[in-house]
Design a protein around this nucleic acid. Sequence first.
DNA 1: CCTGAAATCCACTATTG
DNA 2: CAATAGTGGATTTCAGG
Lengths: 164, 164
Amino acid sequence: MPEMKLDRINLRILEELQKNARITNQDLAERVNLSPSACLSRMRRLEEEGLIGRYLAEVAIDRIASTLKAFVEITLENHRQADFRRFDQAIARQPEVVASYKVSGRFDYLLMVVVPDMNRLRQLSDELIEAEIGIAKFVTVPIIEQTKLFDGYPLREMIAGAGG
Amino acid sequence: MPEMKLDRINLRILEELQKNARITNQDLAERVNLSPSACLSRMRRLEEEGLIGRYLAEVAIDRIASTLKAFVEITLENHRQADFRRFDQAIARQPEVVASYKVSGRFDYLLMVVVPDMNRLRQLSDELIEAEIGIAKFVTVPIIEQTKLFDGYPLREMIAGAGG
DNA sequence: CCTGAAATCCACTATTG
DNA sequence: CAATAGTGGATTTCAGG
């Protein structure tokens, strides 16, 4: 099991960093009632153990260029390991596909794509289908508006709700 | 139009921050060939103009607790403004719903939910349906694996691809 | 909008409890 | 493990072009 016990202080450190990755160590230490040195060593430890992965800045892409975001439901023709691997590798090379999820249900993958407009989305769809990476079906679900922004995982609920 | 022209340097600043929000100003300045003070004032300006929103740390939630992530397709019973608003407000209060997208297609919303297990997801589904917030249909699409991680928007492609 | 210097603040490292 | 204190280095401000 790749799970690790967290004490209350580490939990609060993760909560703070989730919402403000550029907080200074001093401010963070103050918020969690720790000395800066103790806080820093905890933070480093959380990084080393992989509990904190990357630090990302949110860019307001739609203030830079006009943007079409969409989900794309993908069904593959075949479902051997090699088919999934080929698809994943092709997707990794497409910068406009910003995230890819293997799912269970009416289709095999749900992609999130970000493109300038519908023309480019159609073009991307053509490219992927003709790339011979085993796509049987390609269904576009345009995003009208993101009505709730990702604001960190519900850490407390996950810990309280889990058996272990 | 809420779009803003970016010079090459600001573009590179955004690219760097997208991938590493905790880069020091000195390192950032070096990478974009600017003095630290010039780099800092550009960064502050990008923040003030809202081109950089929040800074987020990625927490490895599945190393902390066992985790079920899923998409949920929601269809509403009615489609007046007030119906959407009521739904959005209810969703805002649910920490396990980490993101919500209003979409165009076979359903009205696509949610991303993060819960400890399928039991809690069923419970959440029951709660939402019985909350009388106008949900007509609720379809769960469990995530097996995220095969491409969000790694920033394709800034260059968006700028090159757009007309303006 | 930049550079460069000066001042302030912070990260990081002993050291000690 | 945590606190305290010290130092090197980074951030930030400001004068000047």
